[in-house]
Design a protein around this nucleic acid. Structure first.
Lengths: 338, 338
DNA sequence: CTGTTAGCGCCTTCAG
DNA sequence: CTGAAGGCGCTAACAG
């Protein structure tokens, strides 16, 4: 079946026997129109099933009601929830989301952003921008023409708004929780290649005892394989360590560690305490339920949206840092007695 | 800091000392341009950091390179993965995704769709459309102006393309798997209010023995509470039943059942086999790993995207039905001997 | 090969 | 209160 040609404002005007200006006025309700003509126009709109063309409107008014979001990917619940938060906030302001996946590829990320700019979005939110592999100039150029907000970024660029978590503080809090339970020897599980892991490790080193002996790197920390990879690694590490607790840089690793402990017959938390980080949905579905630090992904998203809209309207940029809060569940408990 | 006014094609033309037509030609590379002038234009573009305005272009050419996606929400990994599939396919064809959440609300779904139409998208994909609570006329009207694809829908509307799974067949296959392992008394766990559960139950009834005694409804089947709700319900059901296997309508229920079994000290799969449905990421992270039927969410998405583009280009609609395939993991095994 | 020009659909002064 | 007309940025004939 062929598509019906969409009715335009001219069609409506013609049918209603008025000028396009009048139609525009009743559609936007921004200028007085005699009730009687208003009704005529309404009827014509109804009849033709007329929907105003937003593209044309925005071209004309030089505004745009869509915002762009660039995300590494959707395979990961973390990002999905952040987007959920963005969508939720932005919808109230009648904005729409243009979504692009960067696939963890700097080149792709730049392409996404350029495409968004071409689409004339009124602003862009980038989740976990690949600042390490994209030259700063790209962003500084970008920000001169489009408001920009970064979520979870580790390099600061002028005139960009930021929202993120204080992961160092969160890590401290997590370690304090563990130490408060009497744990002295804590294993630190991290992945490869991410500022986030490094920040946490730095924090760990300051407080830890002989840190080098207690750090294990399980490789890629954010893929579908992470849980299994962690489990494999920990299956060989756990029997050899004298640690009574494990701190994991994210929940995937946390769950992998739980699985390893289960497989080895180590009781959690009686014999071993395990902490994750992030509080993704997964963490509350496993058993025992994982104690973790909440990265409040949803708030990350809604705050970013708020910042972006603020920036669009006022031109002001700012940084918001959220606190990670402890979510105490079943995987941590008092250190076993010697 | 204030935004730089975006350079337009006129600015470029002026700077390069040529006409706008020439600039357009080098940008689109669709008509011959002398190499020398081409270079001049290129330089001007570079200098002004010119990016063509897609809105204007599309307004002019009457085409659109964005497609709309309406999804119930992102909280659920299922939908996120479907979108991932859509994005992946669509990107190759240079389309962009306009994303809207319907929040499981029919009103909201209609609003989303109208907004997308206004934005002049070239087509729309709706995931799990709320066909039960939206009058068919809305869709038939819609499809007259915009190509439409439904993912996982249960009511057929003319000229809409569909992609979905054969859930009846998948259920049969799942039950056959269980029966092949010697299970005769199978518990059927479902949620409330979804065609999907009903289709599965109907299939179960045909094959089951005294089905009424073996059906349990755990309430809302697709929320963050589902795992816990299922666990609670099954904690009281499991000790009273003589079933040796449990078929769950989705993986959240499957995991809830596993948790219940674990908590009750029932060994899985030695004493009880448990099957899920969907194969969301969660199912491979729990222990024991959940045996399930794959709904291949990613393929659902990419196929929908393909169908939509086909429909946009040819006007033809069609239906694709994918097969659920068995993913055998650790939660099912031979029925215990009497 | 290149420039001129007429719209795409809409909003918004500016005159009635 | 209403209509006529210009223009948003770009493309696509149509002339040169």
């Amino acid at each position: 079946m062929e598509q019906k040609r969409k009715a335009t404002i001219v069609d409506v005007a013609k049918l209603a026997g008025v000028s396009v200006a009048t139609v525009s006025r009743v559609v936007n309700a921004n200028y007085p129109v005699k009730e009687e003509t208003r009704q005529k126009v309404k009827k014509a709109i109804e009849e033709l099933d007329y929907v105003p063309n937003v593209q044309a409107r925005e071209l004309n008014t030089q505004r745009s009601s869509t915002i762009g979001v660039v995300v590494p990917g959707l395979y990961n619940m973390f990002f999905a929830q952040v987007i959920d938060g963005i969508e939720d906030y932005v919808r109230q302001d009648q904005y729409s989301l243009l979504l692009n996946c960067a696939k963890n590829d700097p080149k792709q990320e730049m392409r996404c952003i350029t495409a968004l700019v071409a689409r004339n979005v009124s602003g862009i939110i980038v989740i976990s921008p690949n600042t390490a592999h994209i030259k700063e100039e790209f962003y500084t150029q970008l920000v001169r023409r489009t408001p920009l907000v970064f979520i979870n970024a580790y390099h600061y660029i002028p005139d960009v708004s930021y929202v993120g978590n204080d992961e160092a503080l969160g890590t401290q809090e997590a370690l304090r929780h563990l130490m408060g339970l009497g744990h002295e020897r804590i294993l630190f599980v991290r992945g490869v290649n991410s500022d986030s892991y490094q920040i946490k490790e730095d924090t760990f080193r300051v407080r830890g005892i002989d840190p080098d002996a207690y750090i294990v790197n399980i490789g890629e920390g954010n893929s579908v394989e992470t849980v299994d990879d962690t489990m494999q690694t920990l299956m060989s590490v756990l029997p050899e360590t004298d640690a009574t607790a494990v701190f994991c840089c994210n929940d995937l690793m946390g769950v992998g560690t739980i699985n390893a402990a289960n497989a080895l017959g180590i009781r959690v938390p009686q014999e071993l305490s395990i902490m994750g980080f992030d509080n993704i949905a997964l963490s509350r579905y496993v058993s025992p339920k994982l104690t973790t630090m909440d990265q409040n992904m949803f708030r990350l998203g809604s705050n970013a949206a708020q910042l972006l809209i603020e920036k669009i309207e006022t031109g002001q940029s700012k940084r918001i840092t959220l606190d990670n809060t402890l979510v105490e569940r079943e995987s941590t408990g008092p250190a076993p007695k010697k």
